[in-house]
Simulated assay, not measured.
Amino acid sequence: MTDLKQKQSRPHILITGAAGALTQQVINRLRDHCDIVAVDFREQVYLGDSIPSYCIDFNQRSFEDLFRRYKFDGVIHMGRIMSSQLTRMRRYNANVLGTQKLLDLSHKYGIKRVVVLSTFHVYGAVAYNPALIDEEAPLKSAGLSADLIDSVELENLANIYLWRYPDLNITVLRPCNIVGPGVRNSISTLLGSERTPVLAGFSPMMQFIHIDDMADAVVLAYNKTQRGIFNVAPEDWVAYQHALKLCGCKTFPIPSIPPLVPKVLLDTLKLRSFPSYLMAFFKYPVVIDGRAFAREFGFQPRRPLKEIFRYYRDNKKPV
């Protein structure tokens, strides 16, 4: 009888982005005391017999069937499609229209807790960024790159629903560069490469958070009902080219002016790990202030930079 009561009291959580390494870390941290349903827009992922997993478009009618069937208590939305994936229109449909559908269904079915994973890229990289960017700073990326518009619009949607429907208890997380084992984003690929391009004359300050620490941050955010928008980042940062040196990368400079030159070179070399839409982030520092999240959620990263860089130094992959 006790086991039955415990099973009935376990919260039901919908987690999106099941194919991602970070999402799977979050699932592993929650699976012992939560009933999880995992979904992904791109592929179906096997996560064990105890976790139902679906490959489904959020805009399909069948997506609502999951809400009816499982009666979720909470949602962790980590299914943002990166700018390097899919076409711009399909990415917009997934990130913006899909997120809107997810939040509408969350409101319709009485969800009481929503965590949305965003990115520090929404701030944009410009020469006059402040030394530490807090959560009140404007989101400039939409005006700088069409490839980041959907990331900003996803956040704007979450912000609208945060204030329109306070019962959803929405928390938006804006992490710095997430790196570590299994991470397949642009910066992780660059740190793990034997030869890495840099823009001549530029070495901006950067922040890195280990995938283990970021998974802990997501779980902390879900478990404490604190509405709002929070940066997630450690209190240390390092110059990009110095980080590459500590990771054992050999660098080769690319001319940075005029602006068309690096874009043409990168497209010619087909370096997907150094996409032109992120070029400004390799010119100008975007250092975010993570103190509010650390204070509100008691967050303290456990993986120092030297451990992160040692991993990439010991696990080199040729480009």
Rank of each mutant, 00 (worst) to 15 (best):
A292C: 11
R68K: 15
P138C: 11
A292D: 09
K306D: 06
I56A: 04
Q44F: 05
T268H: 12
L148Y: 06
L30R: 00
N93D: 14
V116C: 10
R313W: 07
G192C: 04
P130E: 07
K270R: 15
R80W: 06
A21H: 10
L139R: 12
Q60C: 14
K7S: 13
D3S: 15
A137E: 07
D32E: 14
A221E: 00
Y92D: 04
V232N: 00
R295L: 12
P11S: 07
S9T: 13
G98Q: 02
F67Y: 12
P175T: 06
V114W: 00
D147C: 10
T171C: 11
A142M: 09
L132M: 13
Q60A: 15
Q241L: 09
D267G: 15
W163K: 15
Q207T: 07
L30S: 01
I76N: 00
L102T: 02
F297Q: 01
D212G: 07
S193V: 05
L278R: 07
F274T: 04
R195T: 14
V116H: 02
V75C: 04
L199N: 01
I178E: 01
Q226K: 15
T268P: 03
L260P: 04
S193N: 13
N315V: 12
A125H: 07
R80E: 10
R227I: 07
R184D: 11
Y128M: 10
A200T: 11
N129R: 09
A221S: 11
L139M: 15
L103V: 05
D65Q: 15
L105T: 09
M205Y: 12
M1Y: 10
V183D: 07
D147K: 12
I308Q: 00
S141R: 03
S256D: 11
L139G: 04
F252D: 09
K270V: 12
S151Q: 10
T119I: 10
R291Y: 08
L97N: 10
S141W: 02
L47C: 10
D32P: 02
P181T: 11
G110L: 06
G79L: 02
K7R: 13
Y311V: 05
K245D: 12
P285Q: 06
R164G: 08
Y109M: 05
M1P: 11
I51K: 03
C249E: 02
F120M: 11
A294L: 08
R313S: 09
H107G: 03
Q300S: 14
I308N: 01
S106N: 06
M206T: 08
I36R: 01
S141N: 05
M89I: 14
Q25W: 00
V198W: 05
Y161E: 04
C55H: 14
D150P: 03
A125Q: 05
P52L: 08
P166R: 12
Y46E: 12
G20R: 00
